[in-house]
Design a protein around this nucleic acid. Structure first.
Lengths: 334, 334
DNA sequence: TTCCCTCTCGTGAACGGTCACATGTGTGAT
DNA sequence: ATCACACATGTGACCGTTCACGAGAGGGAA
């Protein structure tokens, strides 16, 4: 910078002013500095700037280490894409900060705190709340992508109304024996919201949930299969299955096919998340779309807004979800 | 740091030595410093260190901005996961540096150069070679993930032998009228390698490629559909279709189904990449797996090795690919 | 003319580390 | 006792910015 200053015949401070587009520099001087910068191929050092300003213009992104990179994680990729868009549009950069597979998740957060290399952090809700708390305690601005019980800014899909609309869809098709897979995971707030959407739809129709048709699920194809096996073995099996994510719905489709049960004629199947694969299945899966990329982008904007001094939103930002009807659901036939 | 030094009754330089685990500090002093650090909640500033050392321990990762986040990009997600693993295992961090959608791809590279915030860059081959050249000219160590004609370190799958084995598979099943979709994209090195694998397999069997069965393809489902329509309209349609990625193979499956052509009984279909969705299709798609995560990880390790002063590999690192046989290919029936 | 204010620019001191070197200790060999 | 040498620690300068000032030039009003 000093070199540029000399070449342009000004002081380094003036160069700094030009770089930061600060006012108070004569147009003629500015252009002289600019050409000097160009001639010397000068590039400012982000490190020095970070040191002086005490901020890096980098935000961290913590998401589950995708050990088993199943297709379900397509949601994550979209989120990452959205985050990066929101971040780079604001002239920040995104630093990946997932835990190593060999370490406890919390240490990823600790590392982030220790290294002091980011100004704020975006956290996928699946990472758990201790980590979020840890960062907040360390004074980091934070935004959570997904549900959180903590009092921090967050962006999430409208799971409740997504599930509500999905359930209404099944009810409108005439289904009454509707199974739920994955609704019994206590402590998972997304699940709770979806479940409550289901309950509301049933209540609106003057019905109640048949608890014998409610199965746990671990979000994997395998657990979807297992749950479906149990459901279909019931004396009075369901006529529709609402799985709380697409992977488990895929498990349902597989088992149904193996048993020669035709979907959707004999069994309607509904998923959640609307993974890109959903449209490719046979039959194409009806699902609830959650707009992962938009969530990521919105979260990024929120966080950077906070970093820039705006007051954080006092309540979670809720993005609409949307039922995508395909060919895995059909009217009840008797 | 000065504060810690005072508290521990030593000089700041000693503190620095402790932090960097340098030798030449008495065990007793070290522990005294460590407790002082703990008591004061001291965390070293990465920015200051970067400034002094003139490196940041951060590597950039440039990949196509996933505008249309189709499922095909699952490959990208896996790559990112692998990269981050390789990077963080070496105590570096990964900075996302994809171009914004609104800007030309080159400007993402320029930004990277201008900001000087990374020590080296990983580049997905799809980003084009001008960007790579730009970074190299600017003095950045670089590693390409995928095929490149430039003389830079790179990591890529063995497309040639992958295609070779796949083609052998079809030939062994008795197929002779084998169509190729996507092999006619000049300049794409991955395509060239796959094509040459096909040619070799045919030559080994004393056969030659029937050019009337070779179709271009744009890597999308839609273009796979279009190519398949043309192929099936031929007076003597193929008995097997080898698409150069899974998306196009999906297009083939779709068209076949619409026309009532049974896969694999009447038509064998083979994909490339082995996207996670491949296993979920009906019928499950036979495909060539390329181990995206491993590529990313390996590239990361290579780059960081270079940053640490190792001599870069003189030729591309080639990771094996593997034919995954599922149910979309079957013996030829007459 | 004088005063004051604004615009433009320059100076010194941080920011929090690292590097190269100088300085002090104890130990063993001569 | 002397010297050399390894080991442990301290000192000054520097990395490349920004920040809080201060200072000079020019212009308008009194």
């Amino acid at each position: 910078m000093r070199t540029v200053a000399k070449q342009a015949g000004v002081s380094y401070q003036t160069v700094s002013r030009v770089i930061n587009e600060a006012s108070g520099v004569a147009p003629e001087t500015r252009s002289r500095v600019l050409t000097a910068m160009r001639e010397l191929g000068y590039r400012p050092s982000l490190a020095a700037r970070s040191l002086a300003r005490n901020r890096t213009e980098i935000v961290g992104l913590v998401l589950p280490s995708s050990v088993d990179l199943t297709f379900a994680d397509a949601h994550l990729l979209q989120m990452v894409g959205g985050v990066d868009r929101g971040v780079s549009d604001n002239d920040y950069s995104t630093l990946l900060a997932s835990p190593k597979e060999s370490e406890p998740v919390l240490s990823a957060f600790r590392r982030l705190v220790r290294q002091r290399t980011v100004d704020g952090v975006l956290i996928e809700a699946g990472m758990g709340e201790e980590g979020v708390a840890l960062l907040v305690d360390a004074g980091y601005p934070v935004t959570v992508i997904g549900h959180t019980s903590l009092d921090v800014p967050s962006v999430r899909p409208d799971d409740e109304s997504g599930a509500y609309v999905a359930m209404q869809h099944l009810l409108a098709l005439g289904h009454r024996r509707i199974a739920l897979i994955g609704s019994e995971n206590p402590g998972n707030l997304a699940v709770a919201a979806r479940r409550s959407g289901c309950d509301r739809a049933l209540a609106d129709a003057g019905l109640a949930l048949d608890m014998s048709l409610v199965e746990r699920g671990e979000w994997t194809i395998a657990s979807g299969r297992a749950a479906t096996e149990r459901l279909l073995d019931l004396p009075a099996p369901p006529t529709a299955v609402f799985a709380f994510n697409d992977s488990m719905a895929i498990g349902t489709l597989q088992v149904a096919r193996e048993r020669g049960i035709e979907v959707p004629r004999q069994l309607s199947v509904l998923g959640f998340d609307d993974t890109p694969s959903a449209a490719l299945l046979t039959p194409a899966l009806t699902s609830v779309r959650v707009f992962s990329a938009e969530q990521g982008e919105r979260a990024a904007r929120t966080l950077i807004g906070i970093l820039r001094g705006m007051t954080p939103p006092s309540s979670p930002v809720i993005l609409p979800s949307q039922l995508v009807v395909r060919s895995s659901t059909a009217p009840l036939t008797r």
